[in-house]
C-alpha cells in the first residue's frame, strides 16, 4: 500500500504482524495499536527516535499515543518499522539471556542491530517497558547510549508517577516532552563535540 494512499485516509491499516497504523488527515498525530495490547510512545527528534513499549497488559483497551514528529512521513514509517522489528530482537535477548553474554540481567540490552543508516539500541525495565533508541550517529559509544537511556528511564519514571497519568495511556506531560527534547539535544551536542 502506497504512502500517499495512506496519508489521505483516517483509517486503520494493517502493516504487518498485527501492527496497525492509524493516521489523521488533518493532524500529524499518529496512533498505534498492537494486537498484544501493547503500546508505543514515541518522541522522534531530528533523526533520533525513542520509543517505549509497555509490556503485558491487563486491560485490552485501545492504546493510543500521539507523538511529536520532526521527520517527514516517509522517515516516520521507516522508523516505526525499525522499532517494530527491534522488538523481536528485544524479545529474543530477554528469552535467551545466554546469547547476549555480558548483558545478562542488565536493563540495558546494548546494540540490537545496525542497519545501513541507523544504530538501534534497546533498554527494558523491570516493568517490561521497552525503550528503543534509533540513532543516525554511527560512531556513538555504548556507554553514552547507556547513560542516555538511564536518564531517559528516570524521566519516564517521573512522568508515569504522576497520579493524574493514566497507566498505559499517552504521557501528556509537557515537562516530560521538554526534558526528553533536552536529553536528545544534549546527546546530539556531545556527539558533535567529540
Amino acid at each position: 500500500m502506497g504512502l500517499s494512499n495512506l496519508s489521505k485516509l483516517w483509517d486503520v491499516k494493517c502493516i504487518d504482524r498485527g501492527v496497525f497504523y492509524l493516521r489523521g488527515r488533518h493532524s500529524c498525530k499518529q496512533v498505534w495499536m498492537k494486537w498484544k495490547q501493547e503500546c508505543l510512545l514515541e518522541v522522534p527528534l531530528q533523526g533520533s527516535s525513542i520509543e517505549g513499549e509497555l509490556g503485558p497488559k491487563i486491560s485490552p483497551k485501545d492504546v493510543v499515543n500521539g507523538q511529536q514528529s520532526f521527520t517527514d512521513a516517509d522517515d516516520d514509517l521507516k522508523l516505526h518499522h525499525i522499532v517494530h522489528c527491534s522488538l523481536d530482537v528485544v524479545e529474543e535477548r530477554v528469552n535467551n539471556p545466554r546469547k547476549s553474554g555480558t548483558t545478562l540481567n542488565e536493563t540495558f540490552l546494548g546494540l540490537l542491530y545496525p542497519t545501513e543508516n541507523y544504530k538501534v539500541y534497546g533498554y527494558i525495565t523491570n516493568t517490561k517497558v521497552k525503550f528503543i533508541l534509533v540513532t543516525t550517529d554511527l560512531d556513538v559509544r555504548d556507554a553514552d547510549v547507556k547513560s542516555f537511556l538511564r536518564r531517559f528511564h528516570a524521566t519516564y519514571v517521573d512522568a508515569v508517577s504522576n497520579p493524574f497519568h493514566v497507566p498505559e495511556k499517552k504521557i501528556a506531560s509537557k515537562n516530560f516532552a521538554s526534558t526528553v527534547a533536552g536529553l536528545v539535544g544534549s546527546r546530539a551536542l556531545r556527539g558533535h563535540s567529540l
Partner: peptide
C-alpha cells in the same frame, strides 16, 4: 494504581528479574 506506579520507581536501579 498506587502499586503500579510505585514499582516503576523502585525497580529503576534493580537488575532485571529473571
Amino acid at each position: 494504581q498506587v502499586g503500579h506506579q510505585l514499582v516503576e520507581r523502585y525497580t529503576m536501579d534493580c537488575p532485571r528479574f529473571t
